[in-house]
Nucleic acid binder design. Structure first.
Lengths: 330, 330
DNA sequence: TTGAAAGCGATACCAC
DNA sequence: GTGGTATCGCTTTCAA
């Protein structure tokens, strides 16, 4: 493969001049510039990005660290990030952590070792605990989960508000024994807060057995939902904090042959293919997932361009989509 | 950040020795080795992978090029690839092409420019057309779509057989006017072949208006399905070649208030969350997606380790899951 | 405007 | 076994 040296020879100039032509073309006689460009063309020369990166201590790769790309929220997010980065000539290293701080740490180290341009991360709980903005030698944008008291760029949903609206909707529809399938990530806890706020404001009792902490997996949602159904006083509505839990809950409801929304309501977060295809369709808070990813990518690009700028936290509102799963006829 | 030079100084040895200790530890006195390791520890030294990559002309990053990560098949595939690569210390660059040969070409160039270790790709039609094994200066494993007459590692589904079984099942259930929503990718065409083979073998007419070529998007599936429904002689069964088309078709069926499976059957490829949650659940050919990704990753790793080995094509069978969407009571 | 040359931080060859 | 040093391919002063 042709190197910059070959091009320099072919064009009868030095490598420095070739480099100048390729980087911005400034301070090069038009005539020479054309000669170099012709040589580049002829030799099908493409700069070695590894060498460039080593010398310039920069790179055009960013890291995207999420817990599991199969979670529809992260799938959509990653697509948006990739799109936005692609437009700016960056590429995306995809990393799944499975909520394991060890995997996350390894990936964060990898980023450091490759002098990556920056990272978009949905942090595990441990990272959240130990995070400081000086921890990492590269720009970081946090998505989905907040890191309190740390000065870092972030794109988040107004979780408390969204959960409050979703729960209030259930109450207004006449549901009273609203079970909540939550998670112990910041996102889940904030949504739980919104849920509890709604109950409290409407004079409903907060009962511990109505809230379960569940790992964000369909099977876990299934098991937890069954527990809430198979009791003397079963829930008349299920509030889940993400689509995986909702899918598990729906499976449980179907297996017990309960009718939605009459026997039991089901509401959740995140729009998915299935939520609008099942009948009745599922009432939910739709996150602007693509917009979240795009915004995170843009924040990161801006910080890469200007490391000194002040940090911003972008808080987006969810959209309540009322559908059949929470609107009984009676 | 500490460099190998700092470690060498701290340990009182040359950089060459440090490099030896870190790469394999061979030909180094145990005593010296310990001294170096201690220095590494003390300085929190981590080798700069960019420098290593430049000098050794290798890397531990692989590229994964798919049309759209949001297609559940690719989501699952990418997760499997990432898992397998992670275990071997490799990381994954994710690239979406949207079936655009230009984007694909740019990414392929990027791979070349970063001396990437290898690539797993679901090629667009143009790549398929121009692909030769000498095209790319790095190992390639093809997934999902076949490249005829080219000697390249590949992991594929036995599409003809799978589609044949799926269609035969429909015929055996009494369906006669089976519409097919296909795609013009090799995968779609092979599945169409299996569909046609089944019709032919059972003495059913092949009618051109029963087959539509549709871009792999939900909206396109929706529109195409409507066309097959809203005719004088509507289909009594819909065969779609991927889950996106099936989702669109289901939406169309629901909108026309048709009953599955009595008014119309629906069968497809790829297991998804929604296919088992809707009622009736969808009959389909489940691809072993995780296994496909894992196998592709393993093939790639093996070829990276031994570029001279003979190529293999792994053909996996799909699993026919018969469910409610194709089994009428009558 | 242009070129020579010094690195970026590793690896690997060749002496010793 | 160990060290010196050329080298990977580029960018970036510094001089001219």
């Amino acid at each position: 493969m042709a190197s910059i040296k070959d091009v320099a020879e072919a064009a009868g100039v030095s490598t420095a001049t070739v480099s100048r032509v390729l980087s911005n073309g400034l301070h090069v006689r038009p005539e020479v510039r054309e000669r170099v460009k012709a040589a580049v063309e002829r030799l099908d020369y493409r700069p070695n990005l590894v060498a460039r990166s080593l010398r310039s201590q920069q790179s055009t790769t960013i890291g995207l660290i999420v817990s599991d790309i199969r979670n529809p929220f992260f799938t959509s997010l990653s697509r948006a990030v990739e799109d936005t980065m692609y437009e700016q000539g960056f590429s995306v290293l995809l990393c799944n952590t499975d909520e394991q701080p060890e995997k996350e740490a390894i990936y964060l180290n990898l980023m450091r070792d490759t002098s990556i341009a920056g990272v978009i991360i949905s942090p595990t709980r441990r990272t959240v605990a130990s995070f400081t903005d000086s921890n990492n030698p590269f720009p970081v944008v946090v998505v989905d989960r907040s890191i309190p008291n740390v000065d870092v760029d972030a794109v988040l949903l107004d979780n408390v508000d969204a959960a409050y609206r979703l729960t209030t909707h259930l109450i207004e529809q006449g549901y009273r024994r609203i079970g909540a399938l939550c998670s112990d990530m910041s996102t889940g806890l904030e949504r739980q807060t919104g849920y509890e706020k709604a109950l409290r404001e409407h004079g409903l009792a907060l009962r511990a057995e109505h809230v379960k902490y569940v790992p964000p997996k369909m099977e876990a949602g299934y098991a937890a939902a069954l527990k809430m159904i198979d009791t003397a006083e079963p829930s008349d509505a299920l509030f889940t904090v993400n689509s995986l839990l909702a899918a598990g809950a729906l499976q449980a409801i179907q297996e017990r042959h309960l009718t939605i929304p009459d026997d039991i309501a089901l509401v959740t977060f995140d729009e998915t293919t299935w939520a609008s295809l099942v009948q009745p369709a599922i009432t939910l808070i739709a996150q602007p997932t693509y917009e979240i990813g795009q915004t995170a990518a843009e924040l990161l690009l801006q910080r890469i361009a200007d490391p000194g700028r002040s940090t911003r936290q972008v808080i987006l509102k969810g959209q309540l989509l009322v559908r059949g799963s929470s609107t009984p006829r009676r």
